[in-house]
C-alpha cells in the first residue's frame, strides 16, 4: 500500500470531530448529545490510529483501545444518568436541567 497522506486522514478526523461538536451544540435531546459525543471520541481515536500508522507502530492502536474502553465506561454511566434525568424531569430536554441550584 502506498501511503495515504496523513494530512488527509487527519483532516478526516478533524471533520468528524467538528461534526460531532456541531451535533452537541445543536441537539437538545440528551440521547443525541451522547451520540454526538461518541462521534467526537471516535474521531479522536482515528487521529491516534493515523499517528500509529504514520510511525508504523502499534502504539496508535493501543491508544485507540484505551480510548475505546473509556468510551464504553463513559457511555454506560452517561446512559444511567440519562435514565435518572428522565425519572426526574420526565423529559429528555437537556435545557431542563438548567436551574443550577440545590
Amino acid at each position: 500500500m502506498t501511503g495515504i497522506p496523513p494530512e488527509h486522514a487527519i483532516l478526516l478526523a478533524a471533520i468528524l470531530f467538528l461534526l460531532g461538536l456541531t451535533g452537541v451544540l445543536v441537539r437538545r435531546n440528551v440521547i443525541f448529545i451522547l451520540m454526538s459525543i461518541e462521534v467526537m471520541i471516535n474521531a479522536a481515536g482515528l487521529a491516534f490510529i493515523v499517528a500509529g500508522a504514520a510511525w508504523g507502530q502499534p502504539d496508535g492502536q493501543v491508544m485507540f483501545i484505551f480510548i475505546l474502553s473509556m468510551a464504553a465506561a463513559e457511555v454506560s454511566v452517561g446512559l444511567a444518568l440519562v435514565l435518572r434525568m428522565y425519572h426526574c424531569f420526565k423529559t429528555l430536554d437537556a435545557d431542563a436541567a438548567s436551574k443550577m441550584r440545590g
Partner: peptide
Amino acid sequence: TQSGQVRWYAAGIA
C-alpha cells in the same frame, strides 16, 4: 452567560 444549559457551556468551550 450562566444559563445552566449544557449546550451553552459546550459552545463556550468550542
